[in-house]
Amino acid sequence: MRPHLFNGSNYSYRKTRMKLFIQTNNYEVWRIITNGSLIPMKRVEGVIIPKEEGEWDNNDSIKIQLNAKAMYTLFCTLGANEYNRISLCNNAKEI
Rank of each mutant, 00 (worst) to 15 (best):
41 M>W: 08
69 K>L: 12
78 L>C: 07
32 I>A: 15
59 N>M: 03
78 L>D: 01
31 R>N: 11
38 L>T: 12
31 R>V: 07
66 L>T: 08
44 V>A: 12
43 R>C: 09
40 P>T: 07
71 M>R: 14
65 Q>L: 11
58 N>E: 13
56 W>I: 00
75 F>H: 15
62 I>F: 05
51 K>L: 05
42 K>A: 08
63 K>H: 06
63 K>M: 13
73 T>G: 00
34 T>K: 06
71 M>S: 04
54 G>N: 09
43 R>I: 03
57 D>S: 04
44 V>G: 12
65 Q>P: 00
65 Q>S: 12
39 I>M: 12
32 I>M: 13
69 K>G: 04
40 P>F: 06
41 M>R: 10
53 E>W: 00
68 A>I: 13
55 E>G: 04
70 A>C: 08
44 V>N: 10
79 G>Q: 12
46 G>P: 02
48 I>N: 12
75 F>T: 13
62 I>Q: 09
39 I>S: 07
63 K>G: 05
73 T>C: 02
70 A>E: 02
41 M>Y: 10
59 N>Q: 10
73 T>M: 07
62 I>N: 10
41 M>P: 04
64 I>Q: 11
73 T>I: 08
38 L>H: 09
48 I>W: 01
34 T>F: 13
55 E>F: 03
39 I>K: 15
46 G>F: 00
61 S>R: 14
73 T>N: 02
54 G>W: 02
51 K>E: 03
35 N>D: 14
49 I>D: 00
34 T>H: 14
56 W>F: 08
42 K>T: 10
35 N>R: 11
35 N>M: 09
52 E>W: 03
42 K>N: 06
59 N>G: 02
46 G>H: 01
42 K>L: 08
50 P>K: 07
38 L>Q: 14
51 K>V: 00
45 E>H: 03
